[in-house]
Design a protein around this nucleic acid. Structure first.
Lengths: 212, 212, 212, 212
DNA sequence: CATGAATGAGCGTTCATTCAT
DNA sequence: AATGAATGAACGCTCATTCAT
């Protein structure tokens, strides 16, 4: 709920501010984000930030919302609900990879907002974003079970948790590796390493870790 | 490195302070932990906290150390390295469950300290605790592969990530469920639900999610 | 290095703050100067002081710098290096006296900053101000020796020390006398007493204390 | 006015504490002297210091008193009042030098207490010590004038100020030189340099700086 | 009397937010 | 609407002094 003042801004300026906010909230915990830093980076007066937004929390939520939308846009390009989730992972490598590159800060922000204790608004965020996203995932899983794509002898919620956790750590690991190998600013980890890692990951997901 | 003053305190008082610190650092990000809050809760003057510890960071690290030790004590009751990791998960249900009940805050603290972006001391903590813990896990995995307990066609590091993520989310889910069902202070989620959830989780781990 | 915020202030306000700072740092040792006192005196919020300056040390150094400049302005009206130092003392009575009246706090501040053991920044100050000032004095003395104005059978450095000490105590004595006789705020010691004291002082300097 | 508790202490312990206090108050400004530091150095509990003395100020004044007495003892070995002050300076080189070595901290303490702005008790100290000491000096000067040892056409008070200032700076200069040349702890500046400097200084005092 | 833990007032500094222009 | 100065609550930390044993 940014103020009208913000919405009336030229798109270019809006983007500038939005991107700066995303970057800052993505790379520092909430309490270490200094509004005057952000303002300085946007070459905007600190006071202006408060003409655009109600307060810091408002900036934070707006920021999450934008990041979330940008992410969903990538996903909704395909009919997620009616897809074989295993195929999805397997086939969408390239686009996921690109998403992780292009929406790096968005991704990091969402990760922090949803899963770290940093934010003082954890519950609100959960309510607003995470629950629906988990519900959405469970929906997909149920569909996949019904279609016979994945086993149906396990509670879909538990499968969802399992999937969320394993894939989140996986992505995190890849991103960190990429950030370390490069000078943090570029993001040019070899896609081959990534492809290989993901395909091993899919195998684990599908077949489990037990020796056959 | 708490000061001698702290170590000389009556055990009871030491525990009181230690537990209060753990609770606070476990439930709020570092920057929101107010030393005078903690002091008040311990019925101790703010200044006393600084007779016990060098500074806030010292309190934080001490707190993590204690939580870590308490955790390790549970784990080291068995010879972790030389165990079938799948059996381990399956058989240690009860003790894991109890650990999660008794060391609830310790668990949450370690989770925050190791995985959240807050804390200005991420790197130090990684250096001091986390690195060895992931290395340790990979060691176990390699042993399990050699013994033929688990598949050896996948990079043990990736298996480690997979395991860490899936089981972390699982535990988190259970803890949150337990905390919500009750009034946060007690922790009386039915062990049966827990047992059931864990055994399904083990199945997923072992066999994967693909339909046979 | 006050911040731009300070430099942009109305000259009047800048002076108000500068003078308050000089007064406080001139009359109390560094550690007893309370920024909120100063702020209160300027009718400015404590926080504002930190919008103007980096920190307390910054205020202190700024203060010294201003006092030093104000002092130098008085001295540089004449070509100090190429002057008979004895004549200088004798003829400049009036202006010295006025300086001591107008720049009372500046004088006291510099005295404290340069010669007292307080201030955690003694060395920096020495480096920045004092060294050049003693060197400058020795330069003058050498010139006076070369011109035959003063004896040249004594190490110029020692003469410098001698001069510094005797005249510093002299000035200090006069200032204290003046401050005591009045209500500290005004400074109306009779110039005649002052002239007399100074001329006797010059005699001692020139001719020594021995009976002829 | 240390408490009886202190006075009843074994002489050895009393000296230990006294010397530690002198050293600390001599080398740091009042506000930076930390009583627990001093206590630690004496291997005495901090609380004990407060059984010996009323408070920090009490310690400070006791310290000054002792230092002052020790100093006076050196001076009163000769009948100061009835001595030719010029001869005194000239002949007592060696003993002054030794005093400066042995009573280094006492000397530094008195210097700070009397002449720097550091102490919050400046006026009291002036009242208690300095005035009598300056009065004493003026007494000597008057006697010297009456005896025809020094000129009597100048106000004895002014001569006193002159002497105080010039000789204080001189001593300060020598002490600093000595402290710099050595590793601060020993104090072994060559007495020859010292003798030479002092004799030049006496010449200046006696004959002034004017070219004959 | 000695000890050393306990206390709390106080200071420097930060930063979200408001205000005046 | 934009600016950037002004505000003040809040927090980390220190240390003289008191208290309990």
């Amino acid at each position: 709920m940014p103020k009208a003042t913000f919405l009336n801004l030229a798109q270019e300026k809006k983007d500038l501010i939005t991107d700066a906010l995303i970057k800052h909230f993505a790379t520092k915990p909430y309490h270490l984000v200094d509004i005057s830093d952000v303002a300085k980076e946007c070459k905007v007066a600190k006071g202006s930030m408060y003409q655009y937004f109600e307060n810091k929390k408002d900036m934070y939520f707006y920021t999450i919302e934008v990041a979330y939308e940008r992410f969903l846009q990538l996903l909704t390009k395909m009919d997620m609900v009616h897809v074989n989730i295993l195929d999805y992972y397997e086939n969408s490598l390239e686009s996921v990879w690109n998403a992780m590159k292009d929406l790096r800060y968005e991704y990091m922000l969402l990760e922090m907002a949803f899963f770290s204790h940093d934010s003082p608004f954890k519950d609100e965020i959960n309510e607003k974003f995470l629950k629906q996203s988990r519900d959405f995932l469970v929906e997909i899983i149920k569909y996949n079970q019904k279609q016979g794509f994945i086993r149906d002898d396990i509670d879909p919620l538990l499968i969802g948790i399992f999937l969320e956790g394993a894939s989140f750590y996986m992505k995190k690991f890849i991103i960190e590796k990429a950030l370390n190998e490069n000078n943090t600013t570029t993001f040019e980890l070899d896609i081959d390493y990534f492809k290989d890692a993901i395909s091993q990951f899919i195998k684990l997901l599908k077949e489990g870790i037990a020796k056959k």
